[in-house]
């Protein structure tokens, strides 16, 4: 059992969720309330990682983050190591790759709030920020919760893009999914089996937790 890999996966999933939560709130809310020209295109772009093979996506990220790219070059100058094949690079890739899993449920959550309720909030004297905090977030919470859990679980299970952008550096980019692959390649069936079982257990637990929380939330709201 590669505990380092499991811990790395958890950290990666945690960071991805932490970065995506505010993004999901802002983008989900924006897409839910506004209609503008090109909205369909923006929504399609957000959904793109869902349909692209991770290898294609990973390839583009490799090119975009590489030492010779503006982003990669800037990173190298600032932090003294390259963005690809690093934990930070994995976080960035994971954040982008999980955009649909975070934004889509958040958007549905905000869309479920009747326009009149939001109007009532502002007519009650709430500033947009107060309305977000006191009315919209509590009401969109089931959607946001789903977004966060999906992102977390999906990051734990992500394989292709991690391999493309991160490689398999122990303690840096070797996640549990990569570690399982390595073990299988090395004919270490027992280790692969244990780690697979652990991953199944964690994923199952996370998703069960969401269902339980959203059911509880549903009761609280009605």
């Amino acid at each position: 059992m590669d505990w380092t890999a499991l811990w790395l996966s958890m950290r990666l999933a945690g960071w991805t969720v932490a970065v995506l939560l505010p993004v999901a709130v802002l983008m989900g809310r924006f897409l839910a309330y506004r209609s503008f020209g090109g909205k369909g295109l923006v929504e399609a772009l957000v959904m793109l990682p869902l349909v692209l093979p991770p290898t294609v996506f990973g390839f583009y990220l490799l090119v975009a983050f590489g030492r010779n790219s503006p982003v990669g070059g800037l990173w190298q100058n600032l932090f003294g190591h390259q963005l690809v094949f690093s934990f930070e690079g994995l976080v960035v890739a994971s954040v982008i790759f999980n955009l649909p899993f975070a934004i889509q449920p958040a958007q549905r959550g905000f869309e479920a709030i009747p326009a009149e309720v939001r109007e009532a909030a502002s007519c009650c004297g709430m500033s947009p920020l107060a309305s977000l905090w006191k009315v919209e977030l509590p009401l969109a919470w089931p959607g946001l919760m789903t977004a966060m859990v999906l992102t977390f679980a999906h990051t734990l299970g992500e394989f292709g893009i991690v391999l493309m952008v991160g490689g398999s550096i122990p303690g840096e980019t070797r996640t549990i999914a990569i570690a399982i692959y390595d073990r299988v390649q090395a004919f270490d069936g027992q280790a692969a089996a244990i780690m697979s079982a652990v991953l199944v257990a964690i994923s199952l637990f996370t998703i069960a937790l969401t269902y339980w929380l959203s059911a509880r939330m549903g009761r609280r709201l009605s």
């Binding site: 009149e116 309720v117 009532a120 909030a121 009315v135 009401l139 009605s222």
Partner: peptide, 10 residues
Amino acid sequence: VFQNYALFPH
């Protein structure tokens, strides 16, 4: 007072 009241359900 809105037609459907628009109370905060939570």
